[in-house]
Amino acid sequence: MPLRPSRGPTDEEFAELVHAAWPALYRTAVLLVRDHALAEDLVQTALARTYGNWSGIRDVRAARGYARRALVTTATSWFRRRSFHGERPTAELPEMPTTTDAAGDSAERIDVLAALAQLPPRQRAVVVLRFYDDLSVDETADALGVSSGTVKSQTSAALTKLRALLGDDVDLGHATTLPGGTHA
């Protein structure tokens, strides 16, 4: 019996991937770029890159990870542009906004998203993938194309900077609710 060539994934399987992966990819993109329109562009670019290599994907179950890696590498290339998102270094950190809590009391609101924006791109990506997307060290290393040791050192540096920005008394596991209803 002659061997049949293995078929690549179908366009229908790609459509299923888009529908299933879009929400998680979008939330990750928002955390990385802090702008909803740019996040949509980032997800679309990552999915376009995924589709460009669709015929080479052997296991459709791995496609979600491929799309996530495309998203992170695309975001990283965007971060390398000096003019990305109009971010400019400043000598002083902006004041944290004051809001009213559920009981109507005025309180300092800890804005983890603003603090994340002040991290260098790789540290931001590590924090988002490790603690928001709940990836392991090895999965994060694979998504970023770096070693596990780099993930660990970047995580340590990022958490140190976040503690400095948010204060030592902040429990980063319960600091604020992020888009999608999860906590940072």
Rank of each mutant, 00 (worst) to 15 (best):
R4Q: 14
P5S: 11
P9I: 02
A15E: 10
A15P: 03
W22Y: 14
W22A: 10
W22G: 05
L31Y: 13
E40I: 00
T45A: 09
R49E: 10
Y51W: 10
G52K: 02
G52M: 02
W54C: 00
S55L: 09
R58N: 10
D59Y: 14
V60P: 02
A63V: 04
A63G: 08
R68S: 05
T74N: 02
T74M: 01
A75R: 02
A75S: 06
F79R: 00
R82M: 08
R82W: 08
H85V: 05
H85S: 14
T90M: 10
E92H: 12
L93F: 15
E95W: 05
E95M: 07
P97Y: 02
T99E: 09
D105L: 12
R109E: 09
I110A: 11
D111G: 01
D111V: 08
D111M: 01
L119H: 04
R122P: 04
Q123S: 07
Q123H: 14
R124Y: 05
A125H: 04
A125D: 05
V126A: 02
V126L: 04
R130N: 03
S136A: 04
E139C: 06
D142L: 09
A143W: 01
G145T: 09
S147C: 07
S148V: 10
G149F: 06
K152C: 11
T155R: 15
A157C: 04
L159G: 11
T160R: 15
L162N: 03
R163D: 09
L165W: 09
L165P: 01
G167Y: 06
V170A: 04
V170E: 09
V170C: 11
D171R: 06
L172P: 00
G173K: 08
A175M: 01
L178P: 00
P179K: 03
T182S: 12
